[in-house]
Design a protein around this nucleic acid. Structure first.
Lengths: 253, 253
DNA sequence: TATATTTGGTCAAACGTTTGAATAATCAAG
DNA sequence: CTTGATTATTCAAACGTTTGACCAAATATA
């Protein structure tokens, strides 16, 4: 448990003792290295997501991360390697976010055991989770933009993203659709409908500018995201031939 | 009619006579101008779509268009102006493609007059048109990539694209959804479902790499696009509470 | 000749990268 | 408790290349 945390955050690795009580060797040399590294990685993610690889200069990046220009190459050994590290970091970052959502979906589908009301609830829960996460999580904003960019303009890092994060998500949705449609999860039509299912959700992230322009919104907010979910979920349930989910308010009436 | 064609292709504008039979004034000076301009514009579209504004250098562009570096600035007066012209050209190009699709949809929805079988056929026809166009038309490939880029990373040209091409498309889908759901076309939930409707289709273009990877395809083909349409259309009909469309084969049986 | 276009070249600025000195911490020796 | 070696990091300057822009001369048609 403590191991997991230290791996996922990856900070303070050199600052304390290890779990055996042995003295961990303190960092030598001028301090601040891990700090700068983290700042560079964070700035790089945001900038690459917003403007793409060639749209970001090393100088701009160094300025944003508040480090010297040379420090970027010192820590990462070049722009290309930095981009690679950014993708690795992205994959690490979104794992703990989508992992539980995927886990919950697969669990609930399994527990539903074909019961269609239960499948409706799985679907609604999953979509609520996804909308809230993809559209709402401030901390995930640049990651989503980064992903969308890699989707439609795959770099050499794309296969890794596909294998580590996209395939598990699509496979999970596949089990839901297979249960709802009573088809094999490997059926090509299930895979296509998984794409439509996920693509529909992601499109609200990819076309944020369009949605906001057409709805007269400045940006998404919690209430607006809830409204999107409440609007789209019934349509998706119907598309799967699943019964509508009765909301709490409707139950009271 | 002939006017539309000449506008849409925009080539040979200086090569022949106009429709009144008057002699069009032949171009003076060194020849090749309109040719070079068109080649530059075409290369610029493809390159900007693939790598983005800053991912393309003027020299690379000149090489791709087989013109001298100076000729690009001669014709367009700079990289920024060339990008602007590329967007104008894009809007002009996709107009004749999506215009008829939109027109057909609005017409058929109007003629359906609320009849739900007729609305099913509208929907199916529109989606078939869209899938075939967005995924299939080779000539539209870079335009779609360009659009998707502008969606999620709007440049200063975005408002024009929105007004000229996106809003009409969304409004047309809005009339379909309003008829099917018996709501006002301006209802926010109709606008959101229009986004989901279109976004779902576009996602097959945006995530081409994902779809192909998961289906084991190298690329889309006519048959595969038909298969996508045949898979997704029934789901969309169900999501709108519209009756399924009976295919020709099923009718014979 | 007049006009339109192409051409090759130059320019300052910005690019990614490299370098070597300066800095700040730890560690081992005295 | 100081000292000097060692290590890690920062920093400013410079490298050679590429960038977008610009220009005057050359060229090809009317």
């Amino acid at each position: 448990m403590t191991v997991d945390v230290s791996i996922s955050t990856e900070e303070n690795a050199s600052a304390a003792q290890n779990e055996r009580g042995e003295r961990a060797p303190r960092a030598r040399g001028r301090p601040g290295g891990e700090d700068s590294r983290a700042r560079i990685l964070s700035s790089a993610g945001k900038l690459f997501a917003a403007r793409g690889y060639s749209g970001v200069s090393m100088r701009e990046l160094a300025r944003a991360a508040k480090v010297n220009l040379g420090a970027v190459n010192y820590h990462f050994g070049g722009k290309g390697k930095l981009y690679h590290e950014t993708v690795l970091r992205l994959i690490e970052d979104i794992g703990p976010v989508f992992g539980p959502i995927i886990h919950r979906l697969v669990d609930e589908v399994s527990n539903a055991a074909g019961n269609r009301e239960a499948l409706s609830h799985c679907t609604a829960n999953f979509m609520k989770d996804m909308f809230a996460t993809v559209l709402g999580k401030r901390s995930l904003r640049w990651q989503m933009a980064f992903l969308l960019r890699e989707f439609h303009q795959p770099s050499r890092e794309f296969p890794m993203i596909l294998a580590e994060r996209i395939n598990p998500m699509h496979d999970a949705v596949g089990t839901l659709l297979a249960a709802a449609l009573e088809l094999d999860p490997k059926d090509p039509s299930v895979r296509l409908r998984s794409q439509a299912f996920i693509g529909q959700i992601m499109s609200f992230g990819a076309s944020r500018s369009v949605v906001c322009a057409r709805l007269g919104w400045d940006d998404y907010s919690k209430n607006r995201i809830d409204f999107i979910a409440a609007t789209i979920i019934p349509a998706t349930l119907a598309s799967l031939g699943l019964p509508p989910v009765v909301t709490n308010e409707e139950k009271r009436a």
